[in-house]
Each structure stands twice: as C-alpha cells, then as structure tokens.
Design a protein around this nucleic acid. Structure first.
Length: 492
RNA sequence: CGGGAUGUGGCGCAGUCCGGUUAGCGCACACGGCUGGGGGCCGUGGGGUCGCAGGUUCAAAUCCUGUCAUCCCGACCA
C-alpha cells in the first residue's frame, strides 16, 4: 500500500471521523455518544447481518428476541458480570412524566411514578436470557439451545467514538446452553472461528484468533476467545469475542437439567457477539484518503455505471447500452447501479462513488459507443482500463474477485509487517512508539506484569494466539520463565 | 470524573489577544449564461439573535462570571 494512501496516526482520529461523515455512513446524534446510521451505512450493516445470519443458521442456530429492560435483581444475580458492567449502565427509575407546575410548557419526571424495582437497560443480555432459559430446560433432551438475538445494547462509557464505542450500538449476541463442558467449549471455539471466517472471507479483514488473559476476559466468563485486527494506524481492535461461560450463569439463575444418567446438573453456557464496531474496522482497515474502500462482498453496489454525454440524444443512446449491461451484470449475480442523474457532472459522480467505496465504476461515453468499449475503474488500486463491451460481464466478475482478494492480501501484508518479535523491554517500548502494531513477546503469565506493562507503555495483551506454536522463553519485562509469546498492542 | 481545546449561515473556518461602520471568506444552495471523458467557469442572489444566561461599558462575537455542548488526552471499555 502506498504511503500517501495511508492516513497516519496523528491525524487518524480526525481522518476517521471525517471519513465516516463524508462517506455518509453515520453521524453523531443529539443523544450523548449515540450515532445515527445513515441509509448507505445501514445498507452495509444489512449485508453484514445477512451473511452472519446465514453462517449462524448453517451452524444450527436460530434467532429469537428478549427484552430491552432487565430488572435490577436479575441483573445482579451473576456477581462478576454485574460488577463488570455496573459502572456503565443506564437505569430506568420512573415511568411517567407530567406538566411542570413551575415551568410552563415543560415536562418533569412525576415523582410519584417511581418504579418499585429499577430496570437496567441491557448492556448485554445474559441475565434476562438465562432467567428465561430456566423455564425452557428440564432435561438433556431440551439441550442444546442455540439461540442468537439481533439487538441494540447500551453501555454508558466515559468516552465514546463513532462506530468503535458508541453509547448505544447494534450487535448480535448468541447465547447457547449445553449438557456438557466439552460441547460448550467447542461451541465457543466454533463461533470464534465463524467470526474469523466472516472477518477474513467476507470483510477482507485479517484477524488473529486468540484467547484473552484473565484480566481482559469478559466478566463472568471462564474463557474468552477473540479475533483481533490491526488498523492502519497501528492500533489493535477487538473485532469479535466468544465466551465459554462455564456453569456460572446456570448457577446464578438456577438452571439445572436431568442428564442421561438421571442426575441433576447445571447447564453449560456460551455467549458470543459482534457489533457495528466491525464497520469501524472496515473503514479503518481499507479506507484511504479518498474515502471508503469496500470489499465487493459487502458493497451495497458492486458496480456503478456513469454515463458521459453532452446531448440528450447521446444520453438516450448510452441509456440503452447501460440498461443492457445492467441486465447482464445482474444476471451474473452482481449488484449494479446506473447513475444517470443530469444534475451532477461525471467528475462529481466519480468522486462520490470513490467516497462510498464502490468497487468498480464503469464509464460509458460517445467515444465508447463508437468503439464498442467501456472504461472500467477499480476502487482499490484507483486504476482504469478500456475494455470491449462484449467482455464486460466476464471482466467485472474477474475484477470483483480480484478486488476482494487484493484487499485481504494488502491488509494481511500490512498486518504481518506489523507483528514484531521483541525480547527486551527497551525495544518493546521503541517498537511500540515508532513502528507500532502488534508486539510478539514473552510474558510470565502474571496479572501483575501485565498491569505493569500497561501502566508503563499503554500496551495491553491483546490475546494469546491460538494458531501459533508455544515456545518457552523468558518474560520481556521480568525475565521470569514464560511458556509462550503473546501479542501486545495499543488498542482502541 | 481530571487535563487541554473549541463553540460564528447547512458544512469548514477567519475575526476574539488590543471592544468601535452594515460580522467576513471558502464550500454547499438558487437563478442566468458559457461549458462538458475526473469534483467546471463567470455573473447575480438567498441564508447568521456570533452555544446559552448574566455582568462591565456610551458601545460586546471580542472583556468578566456562570452554564451547556462537542472534540482530543487520561481513567473505563465491544
């Protein structure tokens, strides 16, 4: 990737925010830390939803829906989970407004309408779901339960960031119940793999599969699997997580079942989720200074056709050719948009579709009509070629495939160039500051060392990679024995 | 919640230090003409209680006090 296409760290936040807004994906709403996802942005989210949904169904899952409000008593049942989220919960305390007698035309909260028990707006749904599952499960014959929910959740974070950490966000959360530990553990791993496959195959975002250290683990989980991605500014982003919850929630909500041997046992659980944060990952992985760059798999429009003309007569002729092309391209399974608005000039349209990241642009003008050609431009490389009109379908199919692959390869090369093996702490610090990215280093396995390194460098252990062979060594900070290298990085 | 910064037409900004004509500029918008293979040009025009509330002053976008919001850096986190 050429350097001038890579927004660098210092301007990155600004670039990111501007790109998001300029690309017409989302904007800040009037509500603190919340975002309005605009139609084009939502179209991308819908593509992601559709593919994830397909993958979930393929692995035997079903969708369901649970309430937004969680009674406080249910929420606090699983102690660690409750504690972990306590500081970021929106809480409903009243259910009625009334006219304010001291302030004409204004409303106030009716003090007599206080709820007997407060309702927590879900930051995640384990509590309400496990309280429900309790009534669904008696026997091993009722298991497994493999349910997913598409929902919004609210986490009142101190600091928000468009897409990456909004107060309200959209996500899916899977919640499964199993008869055995092994089966639940296998489910958690399976779903982490589904996420990895989705990120890499569909979004062209290379990820590292790993497990979280105890201090980075989901509150209430016994093991957290994750996929970690690297953004162009050298910071890591947790792109998805899948948790093995053990029997913690079953015990907290008293979910027991009779097993094959006729004995009572607690149910084993998993939960897993990805969110609109993935759209942030998309922007920050593939975007350049001209705007978004969308992998063909999730582009709402894979191809846009722009007519170039002077007279109305010319436009009419191009219309005919364009209509024919659209029919052919659609028949080949590609999504195509024909932009024959006469209110904008071609150059403006080109710029607009580059901003939106449309993978391929076809321009047709009078010269093309004469020569039987079209101009095809690809967004990822910003290159153009003239091709014969008869070969359009074939070329488009080929190019879309190539762009999907190229985006992944490009991001993978960048990511791999930014994984540095480091064995001493001075190098650790300098690599972190100057080169950025992941640092593969030995760690003595203690939370104290992890904390100390975080304090000194702001880097955290992103994960213990699953796909890398464990080789012993000595801790980069304490020099104590280490079983294996782990990945450190500054993270969003 | 601590540190820093910023609030001026739809968007991006100048003006604020050092108070003083009718508050400017770019983009966008509307109309007209010329244009037309990468965000066109020229002309004309519409649009602003300068975040909000007090105060100082003959006079406040500008100074003072308070307040709200946003952004960045921390702590927290998908």
């Amino acid at each position: 990737m050429s350097k001038n296409l890579t927004p660098r760290s210092q301007d990155y936040s600004k670039w990111y925010n501007e790109l998001v807004i300029r690309a017409d994906l989302a904007e800040n709403s009037a509500v603190r830390g919340c975002m309005v996802i605009k139609p084009y942005g939502f179209a991308i989210w819908e593509k992601m939803q559709a593919e994830l949904d397909r993958m979930f169904k393929e692995t035997g899952h079903q969708n369901a829906y649970f309430p937004l409000f969680i009674p406080k008593s249910l929420f606090e049942a699983e102690e660690k989970n409750a504690e972990g989220f306590a500081k970021e919960c929106a809480v409903v305390t009243h259910y009625r407004l009334e006219n304010d007698p001291d302030n004409e035309g204004k409303l106030r909260v009716d003090p007599t309408a206080r709820l007997e028990e407060e309702l927590v707006v879900r930051p995640t749904s384990e509590a309400i779901i496990w309280n429900t599952y309790k009534g669904w499960i008696q026997s091993y014959r009722d298991l497994p339960i493999l349910v997913n929910q598409w929902a919004n959740v609210v986490r009142w974070e101190m600091r928000t960031r468009l897409f990456l950490r909004t107060t309200e966000f959209l996500w899916q959360e899977g919640h499964t119940a199993h008869a055995t530990r092994d089966e639940a553990m296998a489910e958690a791993e399976l779903m982490n793999n589904v996420y990895a496959q989705f990120a890499e195959g569909f979004m062209a975002i290379p990820v590292i599969r790993g497990i979280k250290t105890e201090s980075e683990r989901f509150a209430g989980a016994e093991e957290t699997f994750c996929i970690e991605a690297l953004m162009q500014d050298g910071k890591a982003l947790q792109a998805g997580t899948s948790h093995f919850l053990g029997q913690n929630f079953a015990k907290a909500f008293d979910v027991k079942f009779t097993n094959k041997e006729g004995k009572l046992d607690y149910v084993w659980a998993t939960s897993w989720g990805v969110s609109t944060r993935l759209m942030g990952a998309l922007i920050m992985t593939h975007g350049d200074d001209k705007g978004l760059v969308l992998p063909p798999n999730l582009a709402p429009n894979q191809v846009v056709i722009v007519p170039i003309y002077r007279s109305e007569e010319q436009l009419n002729q191009i219309d005919l050719v364009a209509e024919k092309l659209m029919t052919l391209l659609r028949a080949a399974g590609h999504s195509v948009k024909y932009d024959n608005r006469d209110t904008y000039r071609p150059g403006a349209k080109f710029a607009q579709y580059e901003l939106q990241g449309v993978p391929l642009r076809i321009a047709i003008g009078p010269k093309d009509l004469e020569n039987g050609t079209v101009e095809v431009a690809r967004r990822d490389e910003l290159s153009k070629q003239i091709i014969a009109i008869d070969s359009v379908v074939e070329t488009v199919s080929m190019l879309l495939d190539e762009i999907q692959k190229n985006l992944y390869e490009r991001a993978l090369n960048f990511r791999d160039d930014h994984i540095t093996e480091v064995d001493d702490f001075d190098t650790f610090k300098s690599v972190l500051e100057e080169k950025t990215g992941f640092i593969s280093a030995h760690w003595d396995g203690t939370a104290e060392t992890e904390e100390k390194i975080k304090e000194l460098t702001k880097a955290t252990i992103r994960c213990i990679p699953i796909d890398e062979e464990a080789k012993p060594g000595s801790c980069v900070y304490t020099g104590n024995p280490s079983e294996r290298r782990v990945l450190f990085a500054k993270a969003y």
